[in-house]
């Protein structure tokens, strides 16, 4: 029996379409009178102006990095449990490094902090999952405490950061709507794809997930490779955290931002966990729907708009998960 090569793209597309259909169904059921207008806004708002398209792409870049982190973690058999903590650690490090006034350095600091936060739970060996959850909370409170003394504070948003440390913000490319964050995320996707699918290191990381004992018997240093994958996942999540808060965060109080990002990041990661390209595509779809949801907020209210977007995103992600589960069980 041979697996069909095009099965994943077809399943991914079907899952996205199924999710969209579910969102549209919810929209029709809850607001039948405004459904047509709502649908137009949901799908068309992101491309209705260059500014909105740019904002959607910036958010997509963050989601791409989170999805790639989850992909790396899944490749090594991990669960990506500590990603929120790594995201926050990366954000905090990037914001603290804003004083350097170098956006590249800020992002590197974010990636390094996320990487360290990702590797930390591995020190606890058998209790890595519990440690990852505890470290999420540790990152959350430590970051809030550390950021309290910064010159740019909640309320003034990115404008204040731009005024205090303008060099810390990733610039728009050549004055266009495409921000530097987008090529950074795409470059990471290409690097991750190459690393996991084409190098001996990636082969070793995948072998650990596919049969840990067989990898060990082949002389692969299993613990080291799993720790490296956890660090890579953390690094990507930390980079995402840095980008998110240096770009256009609505607040520097991390406690407010995390649930909002997680709402979109979870389905994006689930949809993109199977392949780096899926991570890129999922991030674009999720960011596109998130942009449409902001328009829906005004039309049908924030709660109902979230319900519509949630149905679209989560049902699509769950459909893909179910497909992968069935395929594995066959």
């Amino acid at each position: 029996m041979k697996r069909k090569k095009g099965a994943l793209p077809i399943a991914w597309t079907a899952a996205v379409l199924l999710g969209l259909a579910a969102g549209v169904a919810v929209l029709f059921l809850t607001h039948a009178g405004q459904a047509a207008e709502g649908l137009g806004q949901l799908l068309g708002y992101a491309v209705s102006s260059v500014g909105r398209l740019g904002a959607a792409l910036r958010f997509a870049a963050v989601l791409m990095l989170l999805g790639l982190g989850c992909y790396v973690s899944a490749s090594a058999g991990g669960t990506a449990l500590g990603v929120p903590g790594q995201f926050i650690a990366g954000a905090a490090a990037a914001l603290l490094g804003a004083a350097l006034n170098q956006w590249g350095l800020c992002l590197l600091l974010g990636a390094a902090a996320g990487c360290a936060w990702g590797m930390l739970p591995r020190l606890f060996r058998g209790h890595a999952a519990g440690a990852a959850v505890l470290l999420d909370w540790a990152a959350y409170f430590t970051a809030d405490a550390l950021l309290a003394g910064l010159p740019f504070q909640p309320g003034d948003k990115a404008a204040r950061l731009a005024a205090v440390h303008p060099g810390a913000m990733p610039p728009a490319l050549g004055g266009s709507f495409v921000n530097a964050a987008v090529p950074v995320a795409l470059a990471c996707a290409a690097a991750v794809w190459f690393l996991i699918r084409s190098t001996t290191l990636g082969y070793e990381i995948r072998a650990c997930a596919l049969n840990r004992q067989a990898a060990w018997n082949a002389g692969v240093r299993v613990n080291q490779r799993e720790t490296l994958a956890a660090g890579l996942c953390g690094g990507l999540a930390g980079l995402a955290g840095g980008l998110f808060f240096l770009l256009d965060a609505s607040t520097y109080a991390l406690s407010g931002a995390l649930p909002s990002v997680a709402f979109y990041a979870v389905p994006s990661a689930l949809l993109g966990m199977a392949h780096p390209l899926a991570a890129v595509g999922s991030a674009l779809v999720v960011a596109w729907l998130r942009s449409g949801q902001t328009a829906l907020n005004k039309l049908i209210g924030q709660q109902d708009a979230r319900l519509v977007a949630g149905a679209a995103l989560y049902l699509g992600a769950l459909a893909l998960l179910a497909w992968r589960g069935m395929r594995r069980g066959k």
């Binding site: 995948r206 596919l210 067989a214």
Partner: peptide, 19 residues
Amino acid sequence: PAEENGLLPDAPLSDSLVL
């Protein structure tokens, strides 16, 4: 190694053969 500890069950067989 014994069969259960020697192959990568969900990867292409070529991956197991070069392990």
